[in-house]
């Protein structure tokens, strides 16, 4: 009982961090990733190359390392010299990392749409932007939802990496209580909390996917 007396309030505090990191990353990364995907497909080779390098770095190095670099190493970069706070560093690292992953999913989704859809929009006199927003993007979202769902669930679990910057999420709460009472129970409890979050998300994602089933 003592274990839970200590664990529950700490879990509630940790949940604020876990869900906060999750929500801010999701809300900002998804729209940003659509822009990044378009830039990656830009006819301007320089733009496409620069975006390609960004995606390569974000996907080619561990998120843990990116968190450490942005918090501990960013202000060493000449000219910039700006030091992020812990929470800023977490938000920046997660958004940059997940934008890269989401953007590749959206790029695949955009490429999967038949070129005839764009051509039909063109001969109807629609602008490129209008055609993308009204014709292409709704079809892309339907196609990429399963892959986006996968990343969203990975994101929930990745939030535990914030421990490296000393920020207390739910996993850190479990560790603290486990150390105090020499018991493994807090870890099992937190495992169940993760499963509960993922169960809710899976339901939400299923509902979103179902919403797009009105057409084939």
């Amino acid at each position: 009982m003592k274990v839970f007396n200590m664990l529950l309030p700490m879990t509630m505090e940790g949940l604020k961090v876990t869900l906060g990191v999750f929500l801010i990353t999701l809300v900002l990364s998804v729209p940003l990733s659509i822009i990044v995907a378009k830039l990656r497909m830009s006819k301007n080779k320089l733009v496409a190359k620069i975006v390609g390098i960004y995606i390569y770095i974000m996907r080619g190095t561990p998120l843990l390392l990116q968190l450490m670099f942005i918090f501990f190493g960013f202000h060493y970069i000449p000219v910039i010299g700006y030091a992020f706070s812990r929470h800023q560093a977490i938000a920046v690292a997660f958004i940059l990392n997940y934008t890269a992953y989401f953007s590749e999913i959206f790029r695949g989704g955009i490429n999967s749409i038949d070129v005839g859809q764009t051509e039909a929009s063109t001969v109807l006199g629609l602008s490129k932007r209008y055609s993308f927003m009204k014709v292409i993007l709704p079809q892309v979202i339907k196609n990429v939802m399963p892959s986006i769902g996968n990343e969203v669930i990975t994101l929930v679990k990745d939030t535990s990496l914030v421990y490296i910057l000393g920020v207390a999420d739910i996993l850190k709460a479990a560790k603290a209580v486990s150390n105090t009472y020499s018991t493994f129970v807090p870890y099992i409890f937190i495992g169940l909390v993760y499963l509960l979050i993922v169960a809710v998300l899976t339901k939400v994602l299923d509902n979103v996917e179902a919403k797009f089933n009105y057409y084939r």
Partner: peptide
């Protein structure tokens, strides 16, 4: 563009 229209071989209707 407003003066010409095209009906594609595979129609290219917007499925959504």
């Amino acid at each position: 563009r407003l003066d010409i229209g095209l009906v594609f071989q595979n129609y290219n209707l917007f499925p959504h």
